[in-house]
Nucleic acid binder design. Structure first.
Ligand SMILES: [Mn+2]
Ligand SMILES: [Mn+2]
Ligand SMILES: [Zn+2]
Ligand SMILES: [Zn+2]
Lengths: 155, 155
DNA sequence: TCGATATTGATAATCATTTTCAATAAGAGC
DNA sequence: GCTCTTATTGAAAATGATTATCAATATCGA
């Protein structure tokens, strides 16, 4: 019987949830794993389906409640892209932005942008005090550039 | 009896809707006016309430259907901000980005950003072919900076 | 091991959006 | 202006997504 090596991220999340006074249950663990391992933002129902395929008897309600707690601890971000406005993706530890594949959803955080100064100047010109920004890039990932037509969606 | 001078934008929209084969009805006209005049993104229900206050007997369904057509003709944009993911705002004629007040919602388009080159480079580093971007600034508008506390929401 | 209680899933309730449909009104052609 | 076709309307019902309720269960500190 193979022992599945647990994902490092979900391992960390379990500790943090524990420290916040939440309990680590079987359904919750399955949901954490799914989200932590995913290379792309997932909808609640996608998480539900993937988690159920792995360990049965999980309720969609529990998915929503688990997402709620992960958000509260800032361990996941809400991602809006394409039609979906409610997908969830593991958050970066520092302020970063997402580059999302328009075909398969595979997402990467990136940083190193030099834009804050420009943002402040634009605000000044319009009389606003800029307090935040929201930036997301869209494109085709390496795999999807090769197989340009196929609409396969990973994990 | 005062003749209300019609908004230039909604006037233009009526022509375009007409040319697209759609009819200009009283409910539709009221909805166009509300959206065209607004200085901030509105939810369907907000549009519904404002339009009903102006001319009675308008259905929420008609609001949804009118938004649908305005979107189809690219006359309005979907705006995601704060909790709301389904607000509607008159679109800019060329590619621009929005700066939105976090307090009252008042929004301005801006351009003159020098970022496209940086976006492409970032994509290259990560193996993506960048095809689009999504950028929005948030801040406090001039009025809301003065009356920092009051949560009044215009029109 | 025990016990307080956080968590669970089934079910029902709520909220936003879409569909259905018969009545109405826009507007092209006369 | 009048007529006729048909796009549009609002009420009501249907759908889909999210949230609240609640009794049974599982977690985890003592
Ligand atoms: Mn940033
Ligand atoms: Mn741009
Ligand atoms: Zn891809
Ligand atoms: Zn403001």
């Amino acid at each position: 019987m193979k022992k599945k090596p647990q994902n490092l991220i979900s391992q960390k999340w379990e500790i943090l949830l524990s420290q916040a006074g939440y309990r680590i249950t079987q359904p919750r663990r399955a949901i954490l794993d799914i989200i932590a391992e995913s290379c792309r933002p997932l909808t609640p129902v996608e998480i539900y389906d993937l988690a159920r395929a792995r360990s049965s008897g999980i309720g969609l309600v529990t998915v929503y409640r688990t997402i709620e707690k992960l958000e509260e601890l800032h361990l996941v971000d809400h991602v809006h892209h394409l039609g979906e406005c409610q997908t969830v993706f593991r958050s970066s530890d520092h302020h970063q932005h997402l580059l999302i594949c328009t075909n398969c959803g595979t997402s990467c955080y990136f940083d190193g942008l030099e834009v804050e100064e420009q943002f402040n100047q634009i605000g000044q010109q319009l009389g606003y005090e800029v307090t935040g920004h929201w930036l997301q890039l869209a494109g085709l990932c390496e795999d999807c550039q090769k197989s340009h037509n196929s609409k396969k969606v990973p994990e």
